[in-house]
């Protein structure tokens, strides 16, 4: 009975891990790709670790709970790294299938980004204020990207 339950947990975990990486290959743009690993992988690895807890606890050498620590750690850190990556991608103005929420200032772009922007010129709103704000930001000299991360508030 326990064997079947363990097998079920292990298979679920492995399948979800697989699906998470499949999302990484199949989906079309970076922001949708971000969903696969952060969700599927946490449950995948989570159920594998719970299987491990049950497996080592029922072998007679005492309760072994330290795998729970990895589960807890992954559940706390996975959203944080996803958030950081999404923020970095928004900052770099990566192409997105969805309409971007960021106000853009076309004058500031390097050549590569410029080309991408010209494909969707209809979404761009030129704004004097936005250009002014982004020129004040200190981060832009070291990386060749558009540094305007002012939100479309107005």
């Amino acid at each position: 009975m326990l064997d079947y339950f363990l097998s079920f947990l292990i298979l679920t975990g492995a399948i979800f891990t697989f699906i998470g990486s499949l999302g990484l290959v199949r989906l079309k743009d970076f922001y949708t790709r971000l969903h696969g690993p952060t969700k599927a992988t946490t449950l995948g690895v989570g159920s594998l670790l719970i299987a491990s807890v049950i497996f080592f606890s029922t072998r007679g050498t005492g309760v072994s709970l330290h795998e729970l620590l990895i589960t807890l750690f992954l559940f706390i850190t996975a959203p944080v790294s996803a958030h950081m990556l999404a923020k970095a991608a928004l900052h770099l103005n990566l192409d997105s299938l969805a309409k971007m929420p960021v106000e853009k200032a076309p004058e500031e772009k390097v050549k590569k980004v410029k080309k991408e922007v010209e494909e969707k010129t209809d979404e761009i709103q030129t704004d004097e204020k936005a250009a002014h704000v982004s020129s004040e930001e200190p981060a832009k000299e070291s990386t060749p990207q558009n540094s305007n991360e002012k939100l479309a508030d107005s």
Binding site: I10, G13, A14, T17, G20, S21, L24, F30, R33, L34, G36, P37, T41, T42, G44, V45, L48, L49, A51, S52, F55, R59, E67, I70, L74, A78, S81, L85, A88, A89, L92, L94
Partner: peptide, 29 residues
């Protein structure tokens, strides 16, 4: 195609490696 994609791939790789190690631990007992 982009650098964040590669970072995301590295992130997924380490989570997958944890899964592999845990499975291997169960396999070897």
């Amino acid at each position: 195609p982009s650098v964040p994609d590669r970072v995301l791939a590295l992130d997924t790789l380490y989570v997958n490696t944890i899964a592999l190690l845990v499975l291997f631990g169960i396999h070897l007992g």
